[in-house]
Simulated scan of single mutants.
Amino acid sequence: MLQFLSIEPDQIDLLTKLALRFAFNLASTFIIVVLLYARISKRKEFYFSYFAISIAVFLLVFLLESVKVELGFALGLFAIFGIIRYRTDAIPPKEMTYLFIIIAVSVINALSKDYFSYIELTFVNLLLVGALWALEKILMMRQENSMLVVYEKIENLHSDRENELIADLEERTGVKVKRYQIENIDFLRDTARITLFFENNGRSKREIN
């Protein structure tokens, strides 16, 4: 049967490693994307992209590494993804960072099959996940987001009514304003364009009238 399928005995070991490493990489990706990124950022629109890229990069690196492409090819992947621009909306810096991490984890899990045991590989993945969790939760290094608002109550722009302005903006937008910047004031229309800055809670940069 093995001869009919053109599978050599040593290839069985390679297929076993592929299956185990693939499951291991998929589990690491799930922890990073679902349990860490999505729960904190409250965003799910990148699920497909993260998982698809993780699977594609892992299989690409794993299979091509077996024909001795090795590290040069892996580094080339980072260069390719570094210059790619999606034709849709621009990806925020934090999402691009997680994309880079997903690629890095997939490359590590694929290329280390001849160098790291599963215990060492588990430690490396846990170290990476722990560092991300520390940056997100302990150090509170959250990405600051912004929102452009067209505001009509220009009487609240007076310096003596800053508290009323912030309270009104927070009630209307539903975000906790950390700071704001008045871009311009149109006295003919009694409106002002104000940029609000707040902690990233999954809301993208947009304009509110």
Rank of each mutant, 00 (worst) to 15 (best):
T191E: 05
R21T: 13
V129C: 08
E199R: 02
L15K: 12
V33W: 06
S159A: 11
I208A: 12
D186K: 10
N25V: 11
L148S: 02
L63M: 07
T97N: 13
V57Y: 01
F78T: 12
F30R: 01
M96R: 11
K44P: 00
E164R: 03
Y151G: 04
W133E: 04
V150D: 06
E199A: 11
N201D: 00
N156Q: 05
E8R: 03
Q3M: 13
I102K: 06
F48N: 00
F197G: 03
L71Q: 13
E136M: 12
R87Y: 10
S106N: 05
R87G: 03
A192M: 06
R142L: 11
L35A: 05
A104E: 09
L35R: 09
R39A: 01
Y118P: 14
S66D: 13
I119Y: 14
F81V: 09
V105R: 01
S28Y: 03
R206V: 09
L188M: 02
D89Q: 08
I101R: 09
I84V: 14
A110N: 07
L75Q: 10
P9M: 05
E120L: 13
E170F: 10
L111T: 03
F100M: 11
I31S: 09
E65C: 02
L128Y: 04
Y47H: 04
E8S: 05
I55F: 05
L139D: 00
S106A: 02
E70P: 05
V69Q: 04
F46W: 03
L15W: 13
R142S: 05
G174M: 00
L132D: 08
L135W: 14
I101L: 10
Y98N: 10
T29E: 01
N109L: 04
G72T: 08
S117M: 11
R161T: 07
F123W: 14
K137F: 11
L127F: 15
E95M: 01
I182F: 07
L128W: 11
K113V: 15
K42P: 00
S28W: 00
L15T: 10
P9A: 10
L128S: 09
S146A: 03
Y86C: 15
I194G: 01
F22V: 14
I108G: 03
V67H: 15
I40P: 00
F123C: 15
S117E: 09
K113L: 15
M96G: 10
I12Q: 14
F58N: 12
F123E: 14
E45S: 03
K68T: 07
P92R: 04
E65D: 13
L169P: 06
F123Y: 15
D13C: 13
A19T: 06
L169K: 05
F73P: 05
F62A: 10
K137A: 04
V177K: 03
V124C: 07
S117I: 10
A27P: 08
E164D: 13
V129E: 09
A23P: 03
L111S: 08
